[in-house]
Amino acid sequence: MSNQLDLQMSDSNSVPQTKIFAFNGDLDSTNATTTLNTIKTTIESGFVNIVADFKHLRYLNSMGLGILIHLSKIAKEKGGCFRVVRINDNILDIIQLIGAHTIIDIHPNLEDALNAICEQSAKD
């Protein structure tokens, strides 16, 4: 039994090596490891740019926060990035409280995150 978290993956047709994960529900100790493994596998298969859409993510605890930081590190090691979009105020509050907003790239919307990936790819 794990807490309800629905994770939907989709392609970005406009940006190569990029996948978008839409989170729906709560990311916590009951599903953090599964979530980590799913996205990690995607990064290791060559989709090194990940955009996490948090529009429908209601809740995040310290273990969930830990996997976001971990995924950010993995993506960077592979030459890509991990970006979060459409985050709710309560989750952003906790991320800012512990200073993790300096590690995790946060964008207001998908378009902004995808543009940032394109700019980063152009520089590299």
């Binding site: 310290s62 930081i69 971990h70 906790i94 409280l97 512990i98 993790a100 590690i103």
Partner: peptide, 18 residues
């Protein structure tokens, strides 16, 4: 005193802050 990029061990730290 976990740093911003630590992936674990910040649960009780958060409680203390809140």
């Amino acid at each position: 005193k976990p740093t911003a990029d630590d992936t674990r061990g910040r649960g009780m730290d958060i409680v203390q802050m809140l």
